[in-house]
Design a binder for these strands. Sequence first.
RNA 1: GGAGGGGUGGCUGAGUGGCUGAAAGCGCUGGUCUUGAAAACCAGUGUACCCGCAAGGGUACCGUGGGUUCAAAUCCCACCCCCUCCGCCA
Length: 422
Amino acid sequence: MLDIKTIRENPELIKKVLIQRLMELDVDRIVALDREKRTLLTEAEELKHTRNEVSREIGVLKKSGEDATGRVEEMKAVSTKIRLLDEMLRKLTSELDELLSRVPNLPQADVPVGPDMRAGKVVRAGGEKREFDFPTQNHLALGETLGVLDFKRAAKVAGSNFALYRGPGALLERGLINFMLDLHTVEKGYTEISPPFFSNRECMHGTGQLPLLEDDMYHLKRDDFFLIPTGEVPITNLHRGEILEEADLPVRYAGYTPCFRREAGSYGKETRGLLRIHQFDKVELVRLVKPEDSASAHEELLADAEDVVKRLGLPYRIILLPTGEMSFASARCYDIEVWAPGQKEWLEVSSVSNFEDFQARRANIRYRDGEGKINFVHTLNGSGLALPRIVVAILENYQEKDGTVTVPEVLRPYLRGLEKIS
RNA sequence: GGAGGGGUGGCUGAGUGGCUGAAAGCGCUGGUCUUGAAAACCAGUGUACCCGCAAGGGUACCGUGGGUUCAAAUCCCACCCCCUCCGCCA
């Protein structure tokens, strides 16, 4: 959420950003509602002031046994008027809040302007694309031959676009999670969080998944819970509604969670195999920092996520996303993509975002600075990393001529020393 | 799921319709005193929003949302959360 003052003072800027982000919203309506609301509010507050004063008088009169009927009658009329104004305000405010909650964050100055990935800026790349002296297979073929992936049975258990890992495949999944968590907690100093995998409506709103992405969530109607679409939701919302002390910052959390997404509207080739599934595992990194630290924290967070792909020895590149590709709440975002030689394409395995105070404002996460002043924190998060596409990349990059897959060295301790999936 | 108890400021905790944004204590900040510290004493110590150039003024908030009333922390209704016991259960 943006400060209403920002919108009030720069409606044209907001309109420009909406275009850059390929979104539509009636900004003039917001400005008008805001103005109308303040007029009504002032009027209502003045009446309430009168009522408070006179009610006090009535109390005094009654205590001394005097007649207060006239004043009471007067205040009945005032109260009716207040009720009316409050009702108008309530309607107005709810429309205004609804619109406000749909205004996206403002991109930072160096974010490339453009509608799609072609406008993205490759910041750097790492790892070597391997030269294969045999025809490569994609992860579907490899997974099936090796018996480590079983989509048919996943569909039998749940439905299409679910994954099932078997034997060394399951071990690989579990090993990757542990490898990543150990890296971030032991080496990088993150505190590990294992949160609930359900979250309530307030949290979903707090991090910005609601109201725009409701159709993409699994929702438990009876309890009004959502299955989390990312660990970002529960972990960022840990401190919802709190005022942290400056000394508590920066907060750095790492957590493993499964992620649940309906992926409504996705279809075709892109959804085959592990590329886009309804449930996937992810290790998420979250930071809460002072505003002046968020730019450097963003770079550090990126480096922490990058370190995972580096150590796995996967060819990767980092892209600064253009305006049209950034998520709603993000002010600046890097994607990390790994090369999948079987698929012959780059796969997004991490999004590393700086939300500035956008989420903090929604979730009301603040801190008290050295002078006792209260400000919103800045929030950041990054996948460190999303697993299925990493599994794809490992299978495809480490495949051998005989159809086996070599286990990357850093993972072997996590796979009971397993060197080869065969 | 059933029965009972409870949710008040940073913390403990008073407050059952009127001058209560909220006693008291603790904590914290500043000051006095002291060589320094402690103690003691004095003063201050919530958040958000609105009006205003400012000084300042006002409104709201006692788990959340409604309601009753001239007036609600206090009365009524619904919901949420916590605790105890019972049931169920990995």
